[in-house]
């Protein structure tokens, strides 16, 4: 595997954006490129994550491309997912070996529509979506399953709630660089020592909602259990989900969870996962940690999970 590192990060969270998508994305892209000392023509591959359902407009990700100036034409891709999965695609693209840099960004104006209903449209279209279960009720089912599992201590039981997260608008950008290029551009790159993502069934009824098996498998393949992260940035919009993730990741009490404040107070849908990676990488780069864990989630009740391990290297 080729060494790939996060070399810069920028994020912007606002209660309610007055900007269009391009105006929202531009400041973070410019800041992330600026911190890396790069210009747009220095970037080998650009990948973004967002969902047209948030803005209710088809191809909103194409409009946002104005923010990166795609002329002359650039090599670009998009995932209809949280930007953490765009970062995964960019990491894979860097493994090809012919380019050294990639720009990843995510954006979401999550406050434009009824987000609790919009999220219902990611459910199974025959049996679940027509019932319009709102996102918080589904999270409450998961919290209930966790409480009833009998695995929680009395103090953790108080945390096993499904309080709706605060929904905000936002954008984030990350610059990735490989090996020596990363070392040249950044005094302490946060190298990705392992990254993996797994998905569970579309149907909620066949899953054990009190466990996150996909997180556990992704963590194993990302090498999480051989590392000792100082920090873990977990993308858990609901506090019960944080307990499920800590369990799946076997995080002990020495690991500081969500030093950034996490996604419960600032849930920028489609962005919050990429922010977790950016936050964890920043703590490695600024010497607060030698190793940090970042987690991103997508889908209802932690359906899909991505684990990204970041570390400093000599």
């Amino acid at each position: 595997m080729r060494d790939v590192a996060v070399i810069s990060f920028s994020q912007l969270l606002v209660d309610k954006a007055e900007a269009n998508d391009a105006e929202l994305v531009m400041p973070v892209v410019r800041e992330a490129l600026g911190r890396a000392g790069l210009q747009k023509q220095d970037i080998g591959f650009t990948c973004s994550g967002s969902s047209d359902f948030l803005t209710g407009m088809p191809f909103s990700f194409v409009g946002a491309l104005d923010a990166v100036g795609p002329w002359p034409p650039i090599e670009e891709s998009h995932v209809e997912m949280d930007g953490a999965w765009a970062l995964y695609e960019a990491w894979v693209r860097l493994q090809h070996g012919d380019i050294d840099t990639a720009l990843v960004y995510a954006f979401g104006r999550s406050t434009l529509g009824p987000i609790e209903d919009i999220l219902a449209l990611q459910l199974d279209p025959y049996y679940e979506a027509p019932m319009w279960p709102d996102a918080t009720s589904l999270a409450a089912l998961q919290a209930r399953a966790l409480l009833d599992s009998g695995r929680l201590s009395d103090s953790d039981k108080k945390k096993a709630t499904a309080e709706p997260p605060k929904i905000v608008d936002g954008a984030a950008a990350v610059v990735l660089a490989s090996g020596d290029r990363a070392r040249k551009l950044c005094s302490r790159p946060a190298f990705i020592s392992g990254i993996d993502h797994r998905i569970e069934s579309h149907l909620l009824g066949v899953r054990d909602l009190s466990h996150s098996v996909s997180t556990e498998i992704a963590a194993k393949h990302a090498g999480c259990f051989e590392k000792s992260p100082t920090f873990a940035e977990l993308h858990a919009p609901y506090s019960a989900q944080e307990l499920i993730l800590c369990d799946a990741l076997k995080l002990d009490k020495q690991v500081t969870i969500n030093p950034s404040g996490g996604a419960q107070n600032n849930n920028a849908v489609m962005v919050a996962g990429l922010i977790r990676i950016g936050e964890a990488a920043t703590r490695v780069s600024n010497r607060e940690a030698d190793c940090a864990l970042a987690h991103a989630s997508s889908g209802p009740c932690l359906q899909q999970n991505l684990i990204c391990m970041l570390e400093a290297r000599a």
Partner: peptide, 18 residues
């Protein structure tokens, strides 16, 4: 039938508003 209706209020953005 599984009707879908979602309502959005979309700020045009600064440039488009001007």
């Amino acid at each position: 039938k599984a009707p879908i209706r979602l309502e959005y209020t979309i700020p045009a953005g600064r440039a488009t508003s001007r």
